[in-house]
């Protein structure tokens, strides 16, 4: 069987997810042997832009150029895999998407200007994404598993549980319940092995929301612990400001205000 043709692309972002792949030092030779790597400009000098079996795309769509690259890759790729929270959810760059773009540009770039900027969006805002690997950055273990599954001909299996699940298994103190910290664990997709809570740091939500995240319940719990509505929305939306989740929080906030009144 012919080796699958692979392309790895980075849109607007820090390229951290591509680095995770390069950091798989023990497995790199095996990976390179198993695939026909056509394009990976972060690590390769002469990319070949052709038909691909699988394209991995990191970064958010934040400029017209990103959009062009993405649409082109989508046309050429059998499967398109979003890697990293920017590609999956818009990431930190999209945290201010509720604010006026022109005002933000003036604030950041002053008179120098920076005309070619779009509100940072996940890939799924523009194209069909076949599988998502969230994380800031992605987890090496999950990347290797996903690669192996794809090489085997299967889409990888999704993770359907939040960070809390793995945090309980790690036998950590619950930073939300027992320390009253603003921990995003209950809402955030698991798979990191509760990396931050295991080091006594509350989950920052870097992997984006787990499917069916109960945002309203978490919001209510945090209000009861004394956090303000703005702070909660800002923290829960740092890595993934998902409009309908923000809406849920605002709705819950109004309900809560009525309950108090």
């Amino acid at each position: 069987m012919a080796k699958p043709r692979i392309g790895i692309y980075g849109l607007t972002g820090c390229a951290g997810d591509e680095l995770v792949l390069l950091n798989c030092e023990d497995e790199l030779l095996e990976i390179v042997a198993a695939v026909d790597l056509k394009s990976f400009v972060t690590a390769q000098s002469h990319p070949e832009e052709c038909e691909l079996d699988v394209a991995f795309v990191g970064g958010a769509v934040a400029q017209p150029h990103d959009r062009e690259v993405l649409l082109d890759v989508r046309r050429r790729a059998g499967l398109l895999i979003a890697i990293g929270t920017c590609a999956v959810w818009g990431g930190v760059a999209g945290a201010k998407n509720d604010q006026d773009r022109a005002a933000l540009k003036r604030l950041v770039y002053r008179e120098a200007g920076y005309p070619e900027s779009l509100p940072p969006q996940p890939l799924s805002a523009y194209v069909q994404v076949d599988f998502s690997l969230p994380g800031c950055p992605i987890e090496k273990k999950q990347l290797l598993y996903s690669l192996a599954a794809l090489l085997h001909g299967d889409l990888p299996q999704r993770i359907g549980y939040p960070v809390c699940t793995e945090c309980r298994i790690a036998e950590n103190v619950c930073l939300l319940k027992e320390r009253g910290l603003l921990c995003c664990g209950p809402l955030t997709q698991g798979g990191c092995g509760a990396r931050c809570p295991s080091h006594n740091r509350p989950c920052a939500g870097c992997r984006g929301p787990v499917e069916e995240a109960n945002v309203a319940a978490e919001y209510r719990i945090l209000l009861e612990k004394g956090y303000g509505p703005e702070e909660i929305v800002r923290r829960l939306g740092t890595f993934a400001r998902v409009p309908h989740l923000v809406e849920l929080m605002e709705k819950e906030g109004k309900k809560h205000a009525q309950d108090i009144a």
Partner: peptide, 27 residues
């Protein structure tokens, strides 16, 4: 309910499991 499944993890009588297959890179 936050749906975190924490109750199941800490429960001494919860025993449900799922099965996962993890292939190596060699296929």
């Amino acid at each position: 309910c936050l749906g975190c499944g924490g109750c199941s993890m800490v429960c001494p009588t919860c025993y449900c499991f799922s099965v996962a297959e993890v292939p190596n890179l060699d296929g």
